[in-house]
């Protein structure tokens, strides 16, 4: 079962050196424990483009689909047997990156 752990922030790429060190150490631990699937930091929402190709013409819109003060600044995808394990990983991740995070399950296999 996979879980998306989104990092909630009002700035992007704002992690301090100490936070980056803690995140690297956390990532190593997650990989060693076999929970790692993928992770990444995201550029600012202002760099996003929304595409709508449902009609005859492809429409491009500058900016994110949803304007909000807080947004997803980065994410992890973990492999975990159940929500309790995912919540523990997310709690450690929140501590490491020093941000709030949101856990959301993928559709189960």
């Amino acid at each position: 079962m996979q879980y998306l752990v989104s990092v909630i922030d009002d700035k992007s790429g704002s992690a301090t050196d100490d936070e980056m060190t803690a995140i690297d150490a956390f990532n190593d631990k997650v990989q060693a424990a076999g929970h790692w699937v993928f992770a990444g930091g995201l550029n600012a929402p202002s760099t996003a483009t929304v595409i709508d190709n449902r009609g005859e013409e492809t429409l491009f819109t500058d900016g994110p689909f949803l304007e909000s003060k807080e947004f997803i600044a980065g994410f992890w995808i973990f492999e975990a047997p159940d929500l309790d394990v995912a919540l523990k990983l997310a709690a450690d991740g929140s501590k490491a990156c020093n941000r709030r995070v949101e856990v959301r399950p993928f559709f189960g296999e």
Binding site: M1, P81, D82, L83, D84, A86, V103, R104, P105, F107, G108
Partner: peptide, 8 residues
């Protein structure tokens, strides 16, 4: 069910 909250 969806988030797999364990029965434990």
């Amino acid at each position: 069910k969806a988030a797999r909250i364990p029965y434990r």
